[in-house]
Amino acid sequence: MSNADFASLSNTAITFAGVVYFVALLAHLVEWSRLRAVVPAEAGAGDPVRSEGDLLVATGGPAEDNPKVAFWARLGVVLTAMAALIHLVGVVCRGLGADPVRVPWGNMYEFTITASLVVVVLYLALHRKLQLAWLGPVLVGFVWVVLLAAVRILYVPVAPLMPSLQSPWLVIHVFAAILATGAFTLAGLASIIYLIKESRVRKDKVRPGGYLDRVPSLPALDRVAYRVTAFAFPVWTFGVLIAGPIWAENAWGRYWGWDPKEVWSFITWVVFAAYLHARATRGWKGRHAAILCLVGLVTLWFNFVGINYVFGDTSQHSYALEVVATVSLAVTS
C-alpha cells in the first residue's frame, strides 16, 4: 500500500469509528431508557415503604438483574471496544500515510483523534477496576462529538512534519501530553457527574432508577476523579516540565520561554497541583475539589483549542502555519 492509500484508509477508519461510536451510544441510550421504564415500576410495586429519600443511596437495585438491560449495556461496551479498534487503525494509518512515516501527532486533527482514542482506551482499561459502566453513555457521546468536531473542523490532509517537529521528542513530549489530557478529561467527566449528582441530591431530586441514581455514590465518584488525576498529574509534569523543556532547549535555544502555550500548561499544572495539595493538606473533597478539577480541565482545553486560534500567530506552538523567522528590530548606531 502506498502512503496515499494509508492516508485514505485512515480517513475511512476514523469516519467508520465515528459511526460505530454512535451505534454504541444508541445501545447505551436503549439501556438507560429501559431502566427508566423498569425500575420505578418495580420499586413502586415491590417496596412501597421506600421513599424517594431512601432511594438516593440505592444504586442499581433490581435493574442490574434485568437481562435485557444487561444485554444492552454489554452491547454498548462491545461496540465501544470495536469502535476503539477501528479508531486505532485510523490513528496508525494516519502515521503510515505520511511520507516519511511518522507519529500521527503533527497537528490539531491528529492530536485530537489520538487523545480521544486515549480517553476511550483508559475507559475500557479501567472499566472493571473502577466500575465505570455508568460512564458509558456520557463517555461515548463525548468521544463521538469530539471525533465529529475533529473531522468536520480540524481536518487537514496528511503532510510531512515541519522542521521544528522533526525530533524524537515529538513522540515523548506529545504522547505524554496526549495521555495526560485523556486522563484529565476522564477525571473531569467524573467531576461533572459528581457536581450534577451532588446538586440533585441536595435538592432531593434524584429520580429512582434514573441515570444519576445508577452512577456510583458521591464518595466513589470523588475517588475516581482523584485517582485518575493522581495518575495524570505526574504524566503531565513529565510531558510539560521535563520533556517539553528539553525539546524546547534543543529546538529554540531556551528551555522555558513563557510562550502562551507554555504559560497555559504551567497554569494547568499549578491548578492541578493546588487540587492535589488541597486534598492532601486541607482535606478538600467532593464539591470544592470537583470544581477545582474542572477549573484545571478548562485551562487544559483552553490551552489546546485557544492557543491555536486565539494566539495563533504569537505562539511558537501554533502549528497551523510554519512560524516564519520573526526577526526583532535590530538597532544600529
Binding site: 513563557w258 502562551p260 504559560v263 497555559w264 504551567f266 497554569i267 499549578v270 491548578v271 497541583a273 493546588a274 495539595h277 488541597a278 493538606t281 486541607r282 485551562t299 494566539f311
Partner: peptide, 17 residues
Amino acid sequence: TALLLLLLLAVAAVPGS
C-alpha cells in the same frame, strides 16, 4: 496561604499570555 498563593500564581500568569 500556600494554597491561596498557588492559585494566585496561576491567575497571575494569565496576562503574560
